[in-house]
């Protein structure tokens, strides 16, 4: 099994007619994802390589029975796109776009929580989600992941997610689902959401968690792991040597007032029984040891 998405998930691409949306939408389709529709109010009735374009998410859902959407719309339009998808009743929204204002994120996160509790948002500013061999929604290169299991991956960083998938594939270890939650201050899906889903998924036997400096999501995840996880977890935290007060690429990756340091996160995770590596390779090796012992 996999979490959140599988081979039956039908996906609408909001922004399929744009250059990024088209490129990744078609790559995702080629991977096997059921890309059933795109939306663009100005291009309704046209198609992208045979994929029909509708004016709205609601119309696309009505016509295709889709339950998920993937957003490739430029940052100024993301708030509207997320709310449109949620109001239409989409259950799983993946927002890839980076550069979304934090106030927009805080607004639609809370709006969804209050008015659309059955909608799960992933992102924004994330690489998306891949259940290898079944569905790939977003910008992850599908072939760097080995399908199957027993490992689930959750990560705040894009390239480190790929690195993790690749390290595991080199060791011939399969992945049930790999979720990139993104590096922004208000991610729609948290580490804990993913850890809970992996804990409940019978095919996932161990979890690899990749964090980075800033905020306290890793510390909160550590508490959750300590209290609720029976499955082993390995981890890596990027930014051990990052200078305080500087934004390291991601809007969320900033150490402020001595809080959010990699060291504090690593200690919290170690204390929760997580095997913490000093670099991505070591975290991969730790996971290989965990898998060998399963």
């Amino acid at each position: 099994m996999s979490i959140f998405v599988d081979e039956n998930t039908k996906v609408i691409y909001q922004g399929l007619t744009g250059s990024q949306g088209r490129y990744y939408g078609l790559l995702n389709q080629e991977y096997g994802t059921k890309v059933v529709a795109g939306t663009n109010p100005k291009k309704a009735g046209t198609d992208v390589e045979g994929i029909p374009i509708y004016a709205t998410v609601a119309e696309a859902m009505e016509a295709t029975g889709a339950t998920a959407s993937c957003i490739f719309i430029p940052a100024p339009g993301v708030k509207g796109a997320v709310l449109e998808a949620a109001e239409a009743g989409i259950e799983f929204i993946v927002a890839i776009t980076e550069g979304v204002p934090a106030h927009d994120e805080a607004y639609f996160y809370n709006k969804l929580k209050a008015d659309h509790p059955n909608t799960q948002l992933l992102g924004p500013n994330c690489p998306g989600i891949i259940s290898p061999g079944k569905a790939n929604i977003g910008i992850t290169a599908g072939h760097i992941a080995k399908a199957g299991g027993p490992v689930g991956i959750v990560s705040r960083s894009g390239t480190l997610t790929y690195q993790a998938l690749y390290e595991l594939k080199q060791k011939d270890i399969g992945v049930t689902t790999c979720v990139g939650i993104g590096g922004d201050p208000v991610p729609g899906t948290s580490f804990i959401d993913c850890l809970a889903a992996f804990e409940a998924d019978p095919d996932t036997k161990a979890v690899m968690m990749i964090g980075e400096i800033g905020g306290s999501a890793e510390e909160e995840a550590a508490e959750f792991i300590k209290a609720n996880m029976t499955k082993p977890v390995s981890s890596y935290i990027a930014g051990v040597t990052a200078p305080p007060g500087k934004k390291m690429g991601h809007a969320g990756a900033i150490v402020s007032g001595g809080k959010g340091t990699a060291k504090a996160k690593m200690e919290a995770l170690t204390d929760a029984g997580v095997k913490v590596g000093d670099n991505p390779t070591e975290a991969g090796e730790l996971m290989a040891e965990i898998v060998a012992a399963l």
Binding site: S157, Q163, V240, A242, H250
Partner: peptide
Amino acid sequence: IANGAGLAMSTVDVVNQ
């Protein structure tokens, strides 16, 4: 020089390590 914020952070870490 690295591609992606996470990998760039990680590269800085590894150089230090």
